[in-house]
Design a protein around this nucleic acid. Sequence first.
DNA 1: CTTGAAAAGAACTGCCT
DNA 2: AGGCAGTTCTTTTCAAG
Lengths: 152, 152
Amino acid sequence: MTDLDGLDRNILAELARDARQSTQALARKFGVSQPVAWRRVKRLQEAGVIAGRRLALDADKLGYGVTVFLGVKLATKGRVSLQDFETAVSAIPEVQTVEHVLGLYDYRLRVVARDIPDFERILRRRIMTLPGAGEVEANVLLSEERRPGPLG
Amino acid sequence: MTDLDGLDRNILAELARDARQSTQALARKFGVSQPVAWRRVKRLQEAGVIAGRRLALDADKLGYGVTVFLGVKLATKGRVSLQDFETAVSAIPEVQTVEHVLGLYDYRLRVVARDIPDFERILRRRIMTLPGAGEVEANVLLSEERRPGPLG
DNA sequence: CTTGAAAAGAACTGCCT
DNA sequence: AGGCAGTTCTTTTCAAG
């Protein structure tokens, strides 16, 4: 863990909202000089607190109108099967996130599809055939709100 | 939906990997001039395909070592209760995403906490007391892999 | 820790094929 | 649509209070 003062948190909060703003804009917002804001950002990057900058893509505009969350239980939980499962699932392009979790399910997958028939195809031909896949539960995304989190 | 050619898809794939690279770097990678790469990016932004650029933060380095996914069933599903629930849940800083879903659960929440005792506190005092909250299921995140998705 | 300045690089514009 | 050349702005480094 890294320790951050108020300025660091303010900067993170602003950049979390829009990672494209200039260090000068940040500097003005928080009443410091531009090089100071720049050093803070650099420091946060080097410390790994800022792990990278990613695009927020609009799945709908890309033709992917359906997002489904799948909870997957493995039928066989031998040592190899976790790795086998992860490797196989990584080869499915429609899978956006693979979360290894502890609880009622073993994995949670975020899957996108063009429409419901497309999702059925992915489910039957790609998901159900995954090595070790047992019970599968699905939740269809209706709407989603992302929030900055407690970080700052 | 927007239609994209190969260059658009290549650019999106590269920017999805690292949103910080320059249009010149993109131009070189795909054998076009810098202004062309720049115009493509601008067009994708204006079309809303690129919705924004966000920071990838390292929760661990910020002192949040525990991430939990909660599936929540509402006890009462009147018209108002959805809105009430969403408003109340939005006031909990540790909630990073609120997903309204269709299926076994009504909402999926991504919650971060400093450690397990901290998570218990959030669960008991904030989550269980949400208006309309019924059954709650939890999955603790062990590891996570994010992938570009099928877009490009 | 700040300011101010300068060099390098990236973003943006206009004009041409 | 794509390319070239130039202008503007941001980032990055540095000297100095």
